[in-house]
């Protein structure tokens, strides 16, 4: 419905929009919310988008019952280690991936419904001192983990039944990988950012580390969110959670940087800043839109191609937003 409403404005490009509350999920039984995500779920031949909510000790699956009304289908209890985040698996059906740990991720589990046993269950995919994890299309999960001596970067091919079908080791860079991003339009390419402020590129099929490209010294601690390959260039959306406020821009929220993988050179394409006087926290990117929770508790949304903040949702009476 929302897509249809937006279509008439598309020929002129997106305009300033306000955010509208569509529906609420009320869970009286769980403690504070840790994360929220969506998952495709197929039941009785019908594939629909469902919502997953996470608290520290449980994940709940919600189905739409009627407009503005959601019902809880099932709750997985994970009491031994706290839940840190839900790891989205794009285009994957009937699988929820979750990262658990104390301060850092210590294990990754899959939550699923088993038609064989007609029961909901969870299975362990990976343990270790995990620094970054990303879910890719076609049930692939890539993570970086660290021991005192070395860093391991690994891709796990997940099975429909919650196991791991295959594992591919990727060549690790010297610096710790801080984030991964799938490359739209190139199934076998993966990019990552490192603690040394570089962008690295892998070939997922062979595990080769193809290129390491420095982001530049102006902005430290870059985190990659999305990457797009076009016309021989690699466009990477970066955020800089620790960027200081500058006179020219204010506080930086996202940057789109074009890399030429052949030469390793880069150029800034567009940047998006926080509204004046605001400070930001974690952000995320979907297609050409970026969103971030501000320290005020509001949510801001940007059109990354125009470098414009298009909407801001102030904190509600119940408190701050999470993203």
């Amino acid at each position: 419905d929302v897509a249809e409403q937006l279509t008439p404005v598309l020929p002129d490009g997106p305009r300033d929009e306000s955010l509208q509350l569509v529906s609420e999920l009320k869970d009286c039984s769980c403690s504070g919310a840790v994360d929220v995500s969506t998952v495709w779920w197929e039941a009785a031949g019908c594939r629909e988008l469902r919502v997953v909510t996470a608290s520290e000790s449980a994940l709940s699956l919600w189905e739409p019952l009627a407009p503005d009304c959601w019902g809880k289908v099932y709750t997985w209890h994970l009491r031994e280690i706290p839940v840190i985040q839900i790891v989205p698996l794009p285009d994957t059906c009937n699988l929820v991936c979750v990262a658990l740990g104390e301060l850092e991720i210590g294990e990754i589990r899959l939550l699923l419904y088993s038609s064989e046993t007609d029961s909901f269950k969870h299975s362990l995919v990976k343990t270790g001192n995990i620094k970054a994890v990303v879910g890719l299309k076609d049930r692939r999960l890539v993570s970086s983990s660290r021991t005192v001596q070395e860093q391991q970067v690994e891709m796990v091919l997940l099975s429909e039944t919650g196991g791991s079908k295959d594992r591919q080791t990727l060549m690790p860079p010297e610096e710790t990988v801080t984030a991964f991003a799938e490359v739209e339009g190139m199934r076998e390419a993966l990019v990552g950012t490192t603690a040394g402020n570089s962008v690295v590129v892998w070939n997922l099929k062979t595990g080769q580390l193809l290129r390491k490209m420095h982001v530049g010294y102006s902005y430290s601690a870059s985190i990659c969110h999305r990457a797009y390959s076009d016309s021989g260039l690699l466009f990477v959306v970066l955020s800089h959670p620790h960027a200081k406020e500058s006179e020219s821009c204010g506080s930086l929220a996202f940057r789109v940087v074009a890399f030429n993988p052949s030469t390793g050179r880069s150029a800034g394409v567009m940047f998006s800043c926080l509204p004046p006087g605001r400070a930001g926290r974690r952000g995320d990117v979907w297609d050409t839109a970026g969103a971030a929770v501000l320290t005020s508790g509001a949510v801001a949304v940007w059109d990354l191609l125009r470098g414009r903040c298009t909407a801001e949702l102030p904190p509600g009476p119940a408190g701050r937003w999470a993203l």
Binding site: N203, T206, Q208, S229, R265, A267
Partner: peptide
């Protein structure tokens, strides 16, 4: 961004880098 700033662009960069990179 201009092509000169980024150097020569190759549409086949992925295949070319895969052929050059250590296995």
């Amino acid at each position: 961004c201009s092509e000169s700033a980024l150097g020569p662009i190759s549409l086949n960069w992925f295949e070319e880098l895969s052929a050059e990179a250590p296995p």
